[in-house]
């Protein structure tokens, strides 16, 4: 699913914990233009569950949450149109 979308920015937060994971993802998303895609790499299940949920409730479109390795999650998000 993530492959279909060109990723405009990638963020490696595998060694970060909350609240930094959410804060950095949100700020990175706000820097993008509407419709652009952000890819966030996370290293713990709490963040991999909380970050997409919070971003979804902020109104952005969560395209996918993949788990390429046992403790590595990749969240791709499209910035909302506003």
């Amino acid at each position: 699913m993530a492959g279909k979308n060109t990723v405009d920015k990638s963020l490696d937060l595998k060694n970060e914990v909350c609240p930094y994971t959410f804060v950095k993802s949100k700020l990175a998303l706000e820097e993008l233009d509407p419709g652009q895609v952000l890819e966030v790499h996370l290293g713990n299940s709490e963040s991999a569950s909380n970050v997409p949920r919070s971003i979804d409730l902020e109104g952005h479109e969560v395209l996918s949450v993949d788990r390429p390795e046992t403790s590595h999650w990749v969240v791709t998000v499209r910035r909302s149109q506003q």
């Binding site: 609240p19 569950s49 909380n50 919070s54 409730l57 902020e58």
Partner: peptide, 18 residues
């Protein structure tokens, strides 16, 4: 993933109340 740090923070900073 029961972290009360996240729970307390989310009151103000996030829209998720899980």
């Amino acid at each position: 993933g029961y972290c009360m740090n996240t729970a307390f923070r989310s009151f103000f900073y996030e829209k998720d109340r899980s």
